[in-house]
Amino acid sequence: MARTKVINLGAFQFDCRVAGNEKDELVILLHGFPETSIMWTALMADLNPNEFYCLAPNMRGYSRNACPKGKNHYTIEKLGQDVLDLATAVGKDKFHLIAHDWGAVIGWYLAYHYPTKILSYTALSVPHLKGFFQAIQNDADQQQRSKYIKLLVIPFLAEYKIRKNDFELFRKLWKHSSEEELEDYLNTFREKKVLTASLNYYRANFGKTRTEDIGEVYVPTLFIWGNKDMAIGAKGVALGHDYVKGPYTFMESKAGHWLIQTDYGTLKPAILKFLISNRFD
């Protein structure tokens, strides 16, 4: 069962969920937007008996005491460095990485720039960034799916619309989440600074992420995409395949964007098999 742990990184304190034996291989799990580390608790419980130590942080902006003001604190470089520093803080040089949505954006960045640190990478929903951004630039279907980002980058207006009617917009996204997850999400996003911080992921990086700096990935990779995903279309997925040159497994789910909540029975054995096949020791 996951337990809470506060990890200090300089001036920041990250609220984390951890599970398993610290001597086992490390698996870091990165949540997306708008969620928290609670989304991973079931998977963490299923990985522990297979000798994996799981660490799922509430990432920068979501942890109350790791929530600096200003979008410049939320660049992809800083978000990625947090992950590396968390691994170091628990005494690990290498780790497996599992990530969804914005967590997967950070994951692709790490898999390319720090391949010697990553034993395996499991990306959920978001394909290789170069392929994905090519689709945003050139594919009408993906452009339509990504229109929501234009709202999220507008200061104050985005916060106002999201908070309206006690997060009615978010509640629609969370309709597949458990009551426990819903309570955790609301408690997190009702913190005024957290909502703005989470939106700063878009404001600091959208239109500025240097996709040419995220090239071919050679880390063993499992990518799982739901073909009913409202935000990620097939074109970006297809283009992304071309940039994964190492051992690569692609799995298409019949679910939507919220894969863990809606297709866990399919994902769990696939992820577990992949991790076991890429053990370090």
Results as ranks from 00 to 15, higher is better:
residue 234 A to E: 15
residue 7 I to A: 03
residue 193 K to M: 13
residue 48 N to I: 15
residue 58 N to K: 01
residue 36 T to P: 03
residue 40 W to M: 00
residue 69 K to R: 08
residue 257 H to Q: 04
residue 125 S to Q: 13
residue 144 Q to M: 08
residue 139 D to T: 02
residue 23 K to L: 03
residue 4 T to R: 01
residue 57 P to E: 09
residue 167 F to S: 11
residue 265 G to H: 10
residue 28 I to E: 10
residue 178 S to I: 00
residue 211 T to E: 15
residue 237 V to N: 04
residue 53 Y to L: 02
residue 227 N to H: 09
residue 265 G to T: 15
residue 212 E to V: 04
residue 131 G to T: 11
residue 66 A to F: 01
residue 239 L to K: 05
residue 166 D to R: 15
residue 124 L to E: 02
residue 259 L to R: 09
residue 125 S to V: 10
residue 91 G to L: 02
residue 177 S to A: 10
residue 72 N to D: 14
residue 99 A to T: 08
residue 36 T to K: 01
residue 78 K to Y: 06
residue 34 P to L: 02
residue 110 L to D: 10
residue 185 Y to L: 02
residue 144 Q to A: 15
residue 54 C to M: 05
residue 150 K to N: 15
residue 262 T to L: 02
residue 180 E to V: 04
residue 1 M to Y: 03
residue 5 K to R: 05
residue 101 D to V: 11
residue 35 E to I: 10
residue 2 A to C: 03
residue 58 N to H: 07
residue 264 Y to N: 07
residue 73 H to G: 08
residue 27 V to M: 00
residue 168 E to N: 05
residue 107 G to P: 01
residue 50 N to Y: 04
residue 45 A to K: 12
residue 267 L to G: 13
residue 232 I to K: 05
residue 258 W to R: 05
residue 280 F to A: 13
residue 201 Y to W: 14
residue 129 L to A: 05
residue 37 S to G: 05
residue 271 I to S: 08
residue 117 K to F: 01
residue 46 D to F: 01
residue 21 N to Y: 03
residue 88 T to I: 13
residue 47 L to A: 14
residue 96 H to D: 13
residue 13 Q to V: 00
residue 124 L to F: 01
residue 185 Y to M: 00
residue 143 Q to M: 06
residue 124 L to P: 00
residue 89 A to V: 10
residue 56 A to N: 02
residue 248 Y to I: 05
residue 137 Q to T: 14
residue 11 A to H: 10
residue 75 T to F: 06
residue 47 L to N: 12
residue 211 T to F: 05
residue 67 C to K: 07
residue 229 D to G: 08
residue 123 A to H: 14
residue 35 E to N: 07
residue 89 A to S: 12
residue 14 F to L: 00
residue 36 T to E: 04
residue 1 M to E: 06
residue 134 Q to E: 14
residue 103 G to D: 12
residue 59 M to W: 12
residue 273 K to Q: 08
residue 36 T to M: 00
residue 225 W to C: 02
residue 99 A to E: 04
residue 54 C to L: 02
residue 67 C to D: 09
residue 256 G to V: 03
residue 16 C to H: 01
residue 259 L to Y: 11
residue 187 N to R: 03
residue 68 P to Q: 12
residue 184 D to S: 03
residue 143 Q to N: 07
residue 132 F to T: 06
residue 253 S to V: 06
residue 64 R to A: 15
residue 29 L to W: 00
residue 6 V to Y: 09
residue 76 I to Q: 09
residue 197 A to T: 09
residue 180 E to A: 13
residue 115 P to N: 06
residue 27 V to I: 00
residue 267 L to S: 13
residue 19 A to L: 00
residue 112 Y to W: 08
residue 205 N to S: 02
residue 213 D to H: 11
residue 42 A to M: 06
residue 243 Y to I: 08
